[in-house]
Each structure stands twice: as structure tokens, then as C-alpha cells.
């Protein structure tokens, strides 16, 4: 089978399983990419994942990088759209219905039940990520400082990120 098509189908099969943002499918993605198709070694896979985390954009860009490494631009597009298309179609249909029934009692009941779960999960994601980047006291302080400044001011947070990168270069992190 054509390589881009295989990439598309591999990632499309993962898409509907990506509950809660996508980090849940990482083990399965690694199994497919490293174990089943032998496209990458495990260490390559981890390196590409770290790189995708450092880049701007949704963290599932790891699919783009894997596709690119396997088959250039066509591979990058195939893997990215494979990962996004099934879940996006589902969201498009359900979000439309969701909006149409926004005044219905059952819809509000479910909505009120979903919101605390979101709050908890976003908080958990923040805790897990912050724990991962706190490599020492200085990086932890940097994280706390940026969090407080972002909450307390209306300055564009890109400035805080630029300052953080500079602090890293200066050896403070």
C-alpha cells in the first residue's frame, strides 16, 4: 500500500480513541509506529515527541513530525489529517446538535456534569506538565512567576515566554 495512505489509516484508527486531548493514545501510537510498522526506533519516537511539545500548536503535532520523518511532506499531511479527521467530524456533528439543544433540560444537566470534569482534567494536565518541566528550584520558580504574572497582568504572555527562554540561555534555568 502507498506509504501516505498507510500513515493516514494508522493515525485515523487512533483518532477516535484520543479521549481527553490525545496523550492517552501515545502508548498505542508508539506501539504502531515503532513495533508494528518499524518506522522509527523508540528513542527517535521520544525525541520527536519532546520536540513537538516544545513547538507552538496542539501537542498532537508529534503525528506531523512522525509523518514527515517517514515520508516527507506527503507523510506529514497524511499523518496529521489522519489523526484529526475522524475526531473533527464527530465534533462537528455533535457540537452542532449540542448547540441546537442548548435550552433543553437534559442538555444543561449533562453540561453541568461535564464542566467540573474539564476543570479537574485541565488542572491535572497543568500539574503533570509543570512537574515535568520543574528540573530544579529555579525552573519551578520560573513556572510559578509566569503563572502569577499571567493571572495578575494583561501583558501578552509571549513576553513572559521570551523572558523565560532568555533566563534559560543565561543559565538561570
Amino acid at each position: 500500500m502507498m506509504l501516505p495512505l498507510t500513515l493516514f489509516l494508522t493515525f485515523a484508527a487512533l483518532s477516535p480513541l484520543a479521549f481527553g486531548g490525545g496523550n492517552t493514545i501515545l502508548p498505542e501510537m508508539q506501539r504502531e509506529v515503532v513495533g508494528v510498522h518499524h518506522w522509527l526506533s523508540t528513542s527517535d519516537f521520544v525525541a520527536l515527541y519532546a520536540l513537538a511539545q516544545a513547538a507552538p500548536g496542539p501537542n498532537m503535532l508529534v503525528a506531523t513530525l512522525i509523518g514527515w520523518r517517514v515520508d516527507g511532506l506527503a507523510g506529514a499531511l497524511a499523518a496529521t489529517f489522519g489523526l484529526c479527521l475522524p475526531s473533527s467530524l464527530l465534533t462537528f456533528v455533535i457540537a452542532g446538535l449540542w448547540w441546537r439543544f442548548r435550552e433543553a433540560g437534559w442538555r444543561r444537566w449533562i453540561q453541568a456534569a461535564l464542566v467540573p470534569v474539564t476543570v479537574g482534567l485541565v488542572g491535572a494536565g497543568a500539574a503533570v506538565i509543570a512537574a515535568g518541566t520543574a528540573l530544579g528550584p529555579l525552573t519551578a520558580v520560573l513556572t510559578a512567576l509566569v503563572a502569577l504574572l499571567t493571572l495578575a497582568s494583561r501583558v501578552n504572555p509571549l513576553w513572559f515566554l521570551a523572558a523565560s527562554a532568555l533566563a534559560g540561555v543565561l543559565g538561570l534555568a
Binding site: 509543570a130 519551578a140 520560573l142 513572559f160 538561570l172
Partner: peptide, 10 residues
């Protein structure tokens, strides 16, 4: 490393 720590704060 600096960038990642700042991004965590965000």
C-alpha cells in the same frame, strides 16, 4: 528548558 518552564506557568 527555560521556555518549557515558562510555558508551564502559562
Amino acid at each position: 528548558r527555560g521556555l518549557a518552564a515558562g510555558a508551564s506557568g502559562l
